[in-house]
Structure formats: structure tokens, C-alpha cells
Simulated scan of single mutants.
Amino acid sequence: MTTTFLLGGARSGKSRRAQMLAEQAGDRRVYVATAEALDAEMAERIARHKADRGAGWRTVDAPLDLVSTLQTLPASGEIILVDCLTLWLSNLMHHERDVQAQSDALCECLHSMSSDVFLVSNEVGLGLVPETPLGRRFRDAQGRLNQNVAEVCDVVEFVAAGLPLRLKG
């Protein structure tokens, strides 16, 4: 079992890279979606992502309970793609969940997975300092989450302009 973490900015190609790697890894794949269709534009994005994946993917929604979702997936045989940790974190913060406890639980869960797992997340710390306290809290929480996940994953790649840069593994 290999865990692969793909980081990058918005529209960097990280999700496309993760999908390609997952498709190369096996024919039985599950896409764990963290997005929620709270408006028409987001519903359109979700539909587009699903269409881009095409056949061969089973989709499981996990906007909040990512860890329990991962724990209930088959013990082995399916390739797992989680897209994305940034939306998951946003959902956790919006619903006032304990972000550190959830992050710790995710990292512990990744140690026990018996399937290949690909995780996608945004690197949000490369831009300007956010103007609002909420924005700064989110940026800081995302940075900590990314560091924690990168530490436990076997492979870490940073994707920019569709080009992967191997950071670990």
C-alpha cells in the first residue's frame, strides 16, 4: 500500500495528475469527494469533475466524515482518490469541528490503509497574507494539515502548471 499526496495551487493540474496516477494503479477505483454542492456553480464543477473521471470510478461523498468513510472502504483491491483535503478542512471549520483532532485521525487512518491512496490538497500559503482573521486561521490550518499529511505519506508531489515535482519518495 502506497500513500501519495499531491499539492498545488488552484488549477495547477493536481487533481488531473492524481486521477492519472490512480488510473494507472488499478482498474477498481473509488473517488472520495469532499465537495458540497451549495450553489449552482459548485454543482456544475462537481458534475464536470465526475464527467472527466468517466467510467471505472465509484464515487463516495465525504464532506465531513472523511476518516470514517476511509475506514469503511473495502480492505483492499480498490484504489482510493481523496479530492480534496482543502474542501474537507473548509467544511470542518464551517461546522466547527475539531480540526486538529480530525487531522490527527486522518494521519492515523492513513497508516492503517491496505489500499493505495491518493490525496489532493491546495497549497494556500504561497500567496498574500489573508486580510481577515478567518482567512488567516484557514491558511494556517491548511498549512499544518498539509505538513501532517505529507509527513505520513510515502510520496509527495507538488504540481504547478501541470508539471509534477517530486518532493518525497
Rank of each mutant, 00 (worst) to 15 (best):
L128H: 06
E157R: 04
E131C: 01
N148V: 07
G162T: 08
V32G: 03
P130H: 02
T3L: 05
A25S: 14
P130C: 04
G143L: 06
T4Q: 15
Q142F: 01
E131S: 10
L38T: 15
R17Y: 12
S15P: 01
V129D: 04
A160I: 01
C84D: 12
C84A: 05
E151N: 12
R16D: 05
M20C: 00
Q100D: 12
D65N: 13
E41W: 11
V117R: 15
R166K: 11
E36S: 14
E36D: 05
E131V: 09
M93Q: 10
T3Y: 01
V30E: 04
L145M: 12
C109K: 06
M1P: 09
T69D: 09
P63I: 11
A62G: 09
V159F: 02
D98K: 12
S103L: 11
R139T: 08
M93R: 11
H95W: 05
A161S: 10
E78L: 04
E108I: 06
H49M: 10
L126Y: 14
E44G: 09
S68I: 00
L81E: 04
A43H: 00
S68W: 11
D98S: 05
E23G: 14
S114V: 04
L119P: 13
M1C: 01
S68V: 03
L92A: 06
A161E: 00
Y31D: 10
